[in-house]
């Protein structure tokens, strides 16, 4: 899940009777499964919450290039290098669609970028963890993309049209990424002793941070209740986390790897796995900017933006000159 702890109005969900006619028509349309489009009336809170959510998702795609980009120059074969490059390119593309979707709500990509670089807006906690071995490229695809898909598949049905449509395309590519990640894990898990150790180590390091991607339990959260009423959040964090564990535990077994949780156990009665919660103190530390790579990631993004300033200015100046020359010639 690339959007975590998104705040909505915080006022609690209004009943239809408490709404004025405009808002009531809006909510009824959502309840009936209709889509809200950019020019439609929408409550301020809906617009602001969506900007925060889509913006954070977009930022996650952009910062998410870094931990995987970290291995492109060390990919072990030409094919693996090409696949990883294509994947990171997809992520930049996802960032682009999502910024475009956010722009339809009246916020520019430049503004969102400034808010990311200043630390005002966040990106997913998961990208603050380091990628240390080649097996991490497998673990990121398998677990991180796997967790992201859990959230993004339902978002294809989200109430905001541009976001839902962006998500359809993103989901197709993400599920391909997840398969690629699992493929790397299979190669590693069935490889040499060193490769198997790398695979287990990657799972050990990425398991709990992946569970954290869904965010803390939001059963009681007024923000989540509002977002769910607006259908910009489709499931609770706990539902998605459970689904992720249920899907992933058998895959780990298939790989012959051990999930680092001694309490992980199939619960016949619930028809689901019981499992341990991640360390939520660590999660909040990461959100505060104390993740293992938080400073590095923000430095890298800020440096890229600062170093690129002359390029953006140069190309804009050229476009201006070209336009002026064309006008003078007409």
């Amino acid at each position: 899940m690339y959007a975590q702890m998104i705040k909505s109005t915080g006022k609690g969900v209004k009943s239809l009777d408490e709404m004025d006619p405009e808002e009531r028509a809006f909510q009824e349309r959502i309840n009936a499964g209709g889509k809200i489009e950019p020019k439609d009336w929408m409550p301020d809170g809906y617009r602001k919450t969506l900007i925060r959510q889509i913006g954070q998702h977009a930022h996650s795609e952009i910062v998410g290039q870094l931990p995987e980009g970290n291995w492109i120059t060390r990919a072990p074969t030409l094919e693996r290098k090409a696949i990883l490059l294509a994947k990171v390119q997809d992520e930049a593309g996802h960032g682009l669609y999502l910024y475009c979707a956010a722009e339809t709500l009246g916020v520019s990509r430049d503004q969102l970028t400034r808010d990311l670089l200043s630390g005002k807006m966040k990106y997913s906690s998961i990208f603050n963890y380091p990628t240390l071995t080649w097996a991490d490229m497998g673990a990121v695809g398998w677990l991180v993309d796997g967790a992201a898909i859990m959230n993004q598949v339902p978002l294809q049905r989200t109430s905001y049209g541009p976001y839902a449509r962006a998500m359809v395309r993103i989901c197709k590519e993400e599920s391909f990424h997840q398969r690629q990640g699992f493929d790397i894990m299979m190669k590693m898990a069935n490889g040499t002793e060193a490769q198997r150790r790398m695979a287990q180590d990657a799972l050990n390091r990425f398991w709990y941070p992946s569970l954290m991607m869904f965010g803390p339990s939001d059963k009681e959260s007024v923000h989540s209740a509002q977002s769910m009423a607006w259908k910009i959040k489709m499931n609770t964090n706990d539902e998605l986390r459970q689904k992720f564990v249920d899907q992933t535990a058998p895959q780990a077994a298939y790989l012959g790897l051990t999930i680092p949780d001694e309490h992980l156990e199939w619960n016949e009665e619930r028809g689901s796995y019981d499992f341990s919660e991640p360390d939520w103190d660590e999660f909040f530390d990461v959100l505060q900017g104390n993740g293992p790579c938080s400073v590095d990631r923000m430095e890298a993004r800020n440096k890229a933006w600062d170093d690129g300033r002359w390029v953006r200015e140069g190309l804009l100046a050229h476009a201006e000159k070209k336009r002026a020359r064309k006008m003078a010639a007409e």
């Binding site: 290039q65 990171v88 890229a304």
Partner: peptide
């Protein structure tokens, strides 16, 4: 990868 001047250039 990931550090181009603008997103379109990353792609």
């Amino acid at each position: 990868c990931g550090v181009a001047p603008v997103l379109e250039e990353d792609i």
